Simulated assay, not measured.
Amino acid sequence: MKDKKQPNILVPLDGSIQAHAILPIAGKIAKLSGATLNVVYVGEPPIPPDEVLGKLGFTPEEAAGLVFNQLAGCPCEEAKEIVHLAEELHSLFIALSTHTKKENPRGHLGSVAGEILRTSHIPLIFVQPERGGREWELKNILFPDDGSPATVEAIHPAVEMARQAGAEMLVLYVMNMAESKHEAGSYSSPRYMDQPQHEWPAWASEFLCRMRGVGRVPSEIKTRLFMAKGEPGAEIVRFSKEHPEVDLIVLAWHGILEKEKAATMKEVIRHADCPVLVLRVALPVL
């Protein structure tokens, strides 16, 4: 059954244990946002509707309140069908594991997940299947901010999550993130990075003030700013591992997945221990 009026989060499952790793995260976000989990079976071959619960490993009690669908298209077009269904249902998010085959190494991005990432304009939530079915709470959100207006304007779903959960936003500015960008209106780093005491307090205050204004961050959401220098993807992953209180990483990207592009996003999705929320933004004005 499809309900286009009820806010929903689309969760593709293939019946594997690996795919189930997304359920604690999707369930918590659904509860916070007042949304329904719309579970879609993407296995092959199609099975009778009354067998879907068993195939996906749900008991009737666990399935209470959930909506179940099944893809009927060609297996080679699973990603396309998932994105189409999410668009048809006006899903808030598509939530999925990075891969669902146990023989794949940690850090692998499966073909279906990669194609959904490439084609979806709906926000995506990824999780490494190795986290298993552990409970998940949302108390701290890591938002890497490169200082560009497009990045900040894209964070509304994360801001809304923080508001609903009463979570704190940890803002991370990685210097290299801004050095390679020339988007009009971008906010540059302090001149003397090796002597932060000279400019850091005023710069940090202005940076956060600007982020709050452009991103429409309510005053009740607590924010803290951190700075790092190096390759953005590696620094974001390192920061999240050194700060185990980080529950979710939020990334904005421009939808270009070709080789040599989106290196930061791919590094974080593949190697972060916590879930990653990906928000697509418009290409920058140069």
Score class of each variant (00 low, 15 high):
102 K>Y: 13
230 G>K: 06
229 K>C: 12
260 E>M: 07
249 I>F: 02
146 D>I: 14
144 P>S: 08
121 H>S: 01
184 A>N: 12
239 F>M: 09
261 K>V: 05
168 E>T: 14
120 S>R: 01
78 E>F: 06
207 F>S: 09
13 L>A: 06
55 K>L: 00
237 V>P: 11
165 A>T: 07
142 L>R: 09
201 P>M: 05
126 F>W: 01
127 V>T: 15
124 L>Q: 05
151 T>D: 10
158 A>N: 00
10 L>R: 00
153 E>D: 09
164 Q>W: 09
159 V>A: 07
14 D>A: 06
211 M>K: 09
82 I>T: 12
194 D>M: 08
65 G>R: 03
5 K>P: 01
109 L>Q: 00
117 L>E: 13
195 Q>R: 15
42 V>M: 12
98 T>P: 06
9 I>P: 14
230 G>V: 04
3 D>I: 14
59 T>I: 03
198 H>A: 12
260 E>H: 13
190 P>W: 12
3 D>K: 09
111 S>H: 10
80 K>F: 11
27 G>A: 04
84 H>E: 13
95 A>P: 02
167 A>W: 11
159 V>S: 07
174 V>H: 01
164 Q>L: 14
63 A>E: 14
191 R>Q: 15
255 G>E: 02
218 P>C: 04
192 Y>A: 12
178 A>F: 07
113 A>V: 10
160 E>V: 11
160 E>P: 04
68 F>A: 00
172 L>N: 13
62 E>G: 07
206 E>M: 11
